[in-house]
Simulated scan of single mutants.
Amino acid sequence: MAFPTIRNRRLRTSAALRNIVRETRLTAHDFIYPIFVTEETGVKAEIGSMPGVYHWSLDLLEQEINEIAALGIQAVLLFGVPDHKDEVGSEAYGNNSIVQRATRKIKEWQPELLVVADTCLCQFTSHGHCGVIHHDERTGRTDVDNDTSLALLVKTAVSQAEAGADIIAPSNMMDGFVQAIRSGLDEAGFEHVPIMSYSVKYASAFYGPFRDAAHSTPQFGDRKTYQMDPANVREALREAESDVVEGADMLMVKPALAYLDVLRLLKEQFDLPVVAYNVSAEYSMVKAAAMQGWLDERAIVLETLLGMKRAGADIIITYFAKDAARWLQDN
Rank of each mutant, 00 (worst) to 15 (best):
L58D: 13
D59E: 07
D59T: 06
E62I: 12
Q63V: 11
Q63S: 15
E64M: 04
I65S: 02
I65P: 09
E67S: 15
I68M: 15
I68A: 11
L71K: 15
L71R: 15
G72D: 05
G72H: 06
I73K: 11
I73W: 09
Q74K: 02
Q74M: 02
L77M: 15
F79D: 10
G80F: 13
V81N: 14
V81W: 11
P82G: 03
P82S: 10
P82A: 12
H84I: 06
K85M: 04
D86E: 10
V88G: 01
G89T: 05
G89F: 01
A92M: 09
Y93I: 08
G94N: 05
N96K: 13
N96Y: 11
S97V: 01
Q100T: 14
Q100E: 08
Q100G: 01
R104F: 00
K105I: 11
K105Y: 11
K105N: 08
I106M: 01
K107W: 01
W109K: 05
L113C: 15
L114P: 02
L114F: 10
V116Q: 04
A117P: 09
D118G: 03
D118A: 07
D118T: 09
D118I: 05
D118R: 07
T119A: 06
C120W: 00
C120L: 03
L121T: 01
L121Y: 00
C122S: 11
Q123D: 08
Q123R: 13
H127E: 03
G128H: 07
H129F: 03
H129D: 00
C130I: 00
C130D: 04
C130R: 02
G131S: 12
G131D: 11
G131N: 08
H134I: 13
H134W: 10
D136Q: 13
D136E: 09
D136G: 04
R138D: 14
R138G: 04
G140Y: 12
R141S: 06
T142F: 00
D143R: 10
V144Q: 07
N146F: 00
N146M: 04
D147F: 11
D147V: 09
T148Q: 12
S149T: 14
S149F: 08
A151S: 12
L153D: 01
L153H: 04
K155L: 10
T156D: 15
T156R: 12
A157V: 10
V158M: 10
S159W: 05
Q160K: 10
Q160V: 13
A161Q: 11
